[in-house]
Amino acid sequence: MSSSAAVAVNELVVRRGEHRVLDGITFDASAGDFVAVIGPNGAGKTTLIKALLGLVSCDRGSVRVFGTPPPETDPDLVGYVPQIKTLDRSFPARAADLVLTGLRHRWPFYTTTTEQVRAEEALERVGAGALADRALSTLSGGELQRVYLARSLIRTPRLLVLDEPATGVDAAGATDVYGLLEDYQAAHQATIVMVTHDWNAAYHHATHALLIDAQQISFGPPPEALDERCLRKAFGHIGHAHAMLHTVPPHD
């Protein structure tokens, strides 16, 4: 485990009551790495994300983000894109308000012109410039995802943590999201940790895959970490996504 690692997780155990939600997870990720976290429902993927963000505490083992335990990590180093299904749609807000929380670390009471411009620029970078003054409650899943992405990127984080960013987004939209992530990563040498259900995307976009089902099944370059034996162990069966792995041409 190198000291320069953006993320270093060692033998992490998180319990809920007697149940081990995460049981012995070990991996690390450095600048330029793109780690796809994959596993069946209830595998602890979101809990792992929460451990990286300092939202749950570890019962054993350790989590270090840029060398510090997550609750003490400078929030400016980390951009977080939550699952959009957790959004409270009744909350009165414009898209730009949410984007600006990425700069302010507070909900904005007033917005200066400079801030409004920065929010609009951040939205434009993710192809959502027109959304700045739209009410959050009127946005589609794909649009919201872009607003959250703009919010996380406005602070130019060195680590991006995403929880199922492509869920509820159509295939073309998902491709765009991966394109945006790769562009950002290329420009800033950032680290990406992303929970996804999409094995195919993991296979083609990630540098590493972390396959978990409470316990760690594999970690490594996707062709090895997502081989048939590992996937069968995690999911019990493979279904047709496995067939797709072989039919889609390798990413160039």
């Binding site: 929030p75 939550p82 929380t101």
Partner: peptide, 18 residues
Amino acid sequence: WGRWAYATFDRDLAQADG
């Protein structure tokens, strides 16, 4: 107000932001 509003919108998001 800004902290309370942030946590009202999304508690996890606010907590992850310090």
